[in-house]
Design a protein around this nucleic acid. Structure first.
Lengths: 190, 190
DNA sequence: GAGTGCATGTAAAGTGTTACATGATTAC
DNA sequence: GTAATCATGTAACACTTTACATGCACTC
């Protein structure tokens, strides 16, 4: 179900084609969610059949593409989903399992695993922090689209709420970095 | 693949039956990993066929059960997996998406979602902290099994490494709680 | 004898990933 | 003309969850 709600959330900003959505959700974008295009096109079909979105054939230059817009029922479904607490899925972190058994490998090997993890999380933290700052400055295309159909009085609050999400991602990444550094120390102890 | 490595890690402590493993991995245990029994039994069959574990029929009282032990190739595979850095799966957190669109619902509704999340994470943090303390005190059945076939000189280090994993889970939960509390504040702002 | 716990499976469905496949348009 | 980008799909597989199913042993 989730992918559908995430798509609804994006389409609330403005109508988009499947291709635009695949760009936004591609792993390289590292947005809050990622999904391969093989998942997005079928989901759009399903959602259109369910009446949550409507597709319209548009001609841009010589190109034809199907642009999907969120419908009233789609918006209602989105609001309903946002307002419902969904229990967190059971934690399933491979690194936690690896770390649990670090005593089975050479300390140097374990340290390399943690070092690579730290580098990865640092990149994630920086990315999230930068995106948070951009949102706070209302400096992303999607946010500007959203603000354009909302009263100016709400703009600051909206930007702060959205920036906060990415600030939270950065905070989690930093907590995990601190944890990994402590792990490096522990591996050196006798 | 992961479930197989997690199972190998557990079986490194001592041989176990499928039933024991399902107990350990049941959602209620809230260990580092969870898996339903429908996943565990087929995985054990696959692993036995691959030579990573061997099953032995044992009679306990009037009961027959198949007890699986890790083999040399299984231990080698486990060590290999532990020593390899696996890139983190793309983040896919429903609450992050919900929070991104909190401006679409009443503040009171959004606050209820965050409040429930905080309660959930607090429970998780307490559970992880308690388990970390138990490991540090070498006060879990599984850890004692592991220590029993390892030199005493390594015991403290092993306990510290394992306790550290759950301390990390608690730290992440606490970071998310702090984030959610800040979210509650932001929702009240104009 | 009835209920709980031990013990082991299969089936169906949902979700997600990787790979394969195609064709048109625009920019160089 | 050729490469990159736009644009849209299908197929096969892996992983996970929920539900269905069975039967024996032990306790009350």
């Amino acid at each position: 179900m989730s992918i559908q709600h995430v798509l609804l959330g994006v389409l609330e900003a403005r109508p988009m084609s499947g291709y635009e959505l695949t760009q936004l959700f591609s792993a390289s974008t590292r947005w809050v969610w990622s999904a391969p295009q093989s998942q997005i096109y079928p989901a759009l079909k399903t959602m259109e059949a369910a009446g949550l979105i409507t597709g319209e054939q548009l001609q841009t230059g010589g190109r034809v593409r199907t642009v999907y817009s969120i419908t009233e029922p789609g918006l209602a479904e989105l609001r309903q989903w946002i307002g419902t607490a969904h229990p967190s899925p059971p934690s399933r972190d491979a690194l936690d399992v690896q770390a649990l058994y670090f005593d089975l490998v050479e300390p140097a090997v374990a340290k390399r695993v943690l070092t690579e993890f730290i580098a990865e999380q640092q990149a994630a933290a920086e990315h999230a922090t930068a995106h948070s700052a951009r949102l706070l400055a209302k400096d992303t295309e999607l946010l500007r689209e959203r603000l354009s159909h909302r009263p100016a009085a709400e703009h600051d609050r909206m930007a702060r709420l959205k920036a906060h999400v990415f600030a939270g991602q950065a905070a989690v990444a930093e907590a995990r970095i601190a944890w990994a550094r402590e792990g490096l120390r522990l591996l050196d102890e006798a």
